[in-house]
Computed example of a mutant assay.
Amino acid sequence: MSWWSTVIGGALGFMIGGPLGAMLGVAFAGNFSKRRSNSGFNANFSPGNQQRVQAAFFSGVFSVMGYISKVDGKVSKSEIVLAQQVMQHMQLSEEMIQVAKDLFNQGKQADFKLDEVLEQFRVETHRRTHLIRMFLEIQIQAAYADGIFDNSEHNALKAIAQKLHFPIHELENLIQQFAASKSGSKQTSVEDAYKILGAEESLDDKEIKRAYRRLLAQHHPDKLVAKGLPEEMQKLANEKTQEIISAYEVIKKHRGMR
Rank of each mutant, 00 (worst) to 15 (best):
P230C: 06
F166S: 08
A226L: 13
P221M: 01
T188Q: 09
I138Y: 01
V53W: 00
L215I: 10
L92D: 05
F58Q: 02
I160Q: 02
S37D: 05
V26T: 13
F14N: 12
E137L: 10
I168T: 14
G21K: 02
Q187C: 04
K74L: 05
L92Q: 11
S181H: 07
Q176M: 12
I16M: 15
T125A: 11
I8D: 05
F41D: 10
L136R: 02
T129M: 12
E200M: 12
I168Q: 13
G25M: 08
I97L: 01
E201R: 10
R210V: 12
A211Q: 12
G30H: 00
K240I: 09
R133S: 12
P221K: 00
L12Y: 13
M257W: 08
K209A: 14
H126F: 13
G228E: 04
M65K: 07
V117Y: 02
Q218Y: 03
A159W: 03
L24E: 11
E243K: 14
V53Q: 09
L164H: 03
G17Q: 07
G13T: 05
M96C: 06
L114R: 09
R52K: 12
D102K: 09
D204R: 10
Q141M: 14
L136T: 06
E249C: 05
V71D: 01
Q139A: 04
K195D: 02
E191G: 04
H126W: 01
L157I: 04
R36A: 11
